[in-house]
Design a protein around this nucleic acid. Structure first.
Length: 403
RNA sequence: GGAGGAGUACCCAAGUGGUUCAAGGGGACGGUUUGCUAAACCGUUAGUGGGAGCAAUCCCAGCGAGAGUUCGAAUCUCUCCUCCUCCGCCA
């Protein structure tokens, strides 16, 4: 959520910024109108209430009339407030000034590369062929059990999945200084609103009974750990890592990546989340990205870091680096991690603040997160990059300690 | 799921319709004293959100959340949430 004061004082700046990310500026066309209506009502109500307070002090009898008038105006104010809130919750974050302009994902900027693509003396196979042939990936039965875009990992694949999770968690906790948490996987509506999944992206989410939602990413429950809290500056930066399954409906991606582990309704991910002071968040984003990269380096996978252009940024993000890993069967890089600085966008929605010292006014923290990494895609990348002509694949040395 | 109980500010806590437009204590912060620390004493302390104003400042909201009754609600009524105790069920 953006600062409402910014919307009042400088709407043009925001409209300009939103154009960059192809968001519709029309979404808050009525903002000014409704906002001034709201302020007018607020003033009127406050004055009436002041009069009522005076009247009740002297036990005068004209309070009834005032009460009815107040009730009427409050009703109107509530309506305006709801509309205003809906507008505010649907406006995306403003891209940071360092973010490159662009029209689409084509305009993302490569920042750096690590390693080299593997050379094959044969035509490399896609991971799902390798896995099905080895009997360790079973898409057919998973479809029977659940539906399309599900998989059953069997034997070595299941074991590798677990080893990867452990490698990631151990690296982030022991080497990168994150605190491991295992959060709820079902969350309430307020949490989904806090990080920005709702109200706008309901169609991407699984909604359960009792008004609970399945996590699309651990970002939601981990960031909301500190919702409506005032943190001490001594605790910053707070760094958490969490392994959770993630659930996405993938509405609107029919026909995309239909085969294999790349795009599943359920997948495992290790997530990194940080809470920082505003002036440190961009430096922390660089570090967080390096933390995620470290896993790919340990596994010996070829990857590149890409800075997303304004048009490709996620709803809540001010700046994002994607890590993309090489997939030999496709001859291209695919996203395996996304590391973002949300600045105070999520903190404002979720009311996460900190105090610089005992007397200071609370300020919003900055929140960041990144995948460290998407586990299924990592497994797929290992199978493809380290495959041998006989249809088997090598297991990176570093995983042995975790198998 | 059933039956009870509770939720007041950073913490503990008084308060069942109008000098409580939220006592008291602890803590925290500031000060006096002191070579330093502690103690003692004095003072400050609901944070927050919102509105008006160039500003000093003024006003409004707020006792778990929301609605209601009333001239007036922490206090009465209803709904919901959370926690605790007992019973039942359960990995």
């Amino acid at each position: 959520m953006l600062d409402i004061k910014l919307l009042r004082s400088n709407p043009e700046k925001i409209k300009e910024a939103l154009k960059q990310r192809k968001a519709d500026a029309a979404s808050f066309g009525k903002f000014a109108e409704i906002d001034s209506e709201w302020r007018k009502l607020t003033l009127e109500i406050d004055e009436l209430r002041a009069r009522r307070n005076k009247a009740s002090e002297s036990q005068a009898k004209d309070g009834k009339e005032l009460r009815e008038k107040i009730k009427e105006l409050e009703e109107k104010k509530r309506t305006a407030e709801e509309q205003l809130n809906l507008i505010l919750l649907q406006i995306p974050n403003i891209p940071d000034s360092s973010v490159p302009a662009g029209k689409s994902a084509e305009d993302n900027v490569e920042i750096r590369r690590s390693g080299k693509p593997p050379c094959f003396t044969f035509t490399p196979k896609p991971h799902f062929e390798i896995g099905e042939k080895l009997g360790i990936l079973d898409f057919e039965r998973a479809t029977k059990v659940s539906g399309s875009r599900f998989v059953i990992l069997k034997g070595l694949a299941a074991k590798l999945e677990r080893a990867l999770i452990n490698l990631m968690l151990d690296t982030h906790t022991k080497e990168n200084g994150y605190t491991e948490v295992f959060p709820p996987i079902l969350v309430n509506t307020k949490s989904m609103q806090g990080t920005g999944q709702l109200p706008k992206f309901e169609e991407d989410l699984y909604h359960c009974s009792d008004d609970l939602w399945l996590l699309p990413t651990a970002e939601v429950s981990v960031t909301n750990i500190h919702r409506e809290e005032i943190l001490s500056i001594n605790d910053l930066p707070l760094k958490y890592c969490a392994y959770t399954p993630c659930f996405r409906r993938e509405a609107g991606s029919y026909g995309k990546d239909v085969r294999g582990l790349i795009r599943q309704h359920q997948f495992n991910k290790v997530e990194l989340v940080k809470f920082t002071e505003p002036e440190k968040s961009f430096a922390e984003l660089e570090k967080l990205t390096l933390d995620a990269e470290k896993i790919l380096q340990k596994l010996g996978l070829h990857y590149r870091v890409v800075e997303l252009c304004a048009a490709d940024l996620g709803f809540a993000s001010a700046k994002t680096y994607d890590l993309e890993v090489w997939f030999p069967s496709q001859g291209r890089f695919r996203e395996i991690s996304s590391c973002s600085n949300f600045e105070d966008f999520q903190a404002r929605r979720a009311l996460i603040k900190f105090r610089r010292d005992a007397k200071a006014k609370p300020e919003f923290v900055h929140t960041l997160n990144g995948s460290g990494l998407a586990v299924g895609r990592t497994l797929a990348a290992i199978m493809e990059n380290f495959q041998k002509e006989d249809g088997t694949f090598e297991i990176p040395e570093v995983l042995n300690a975790h198998l």
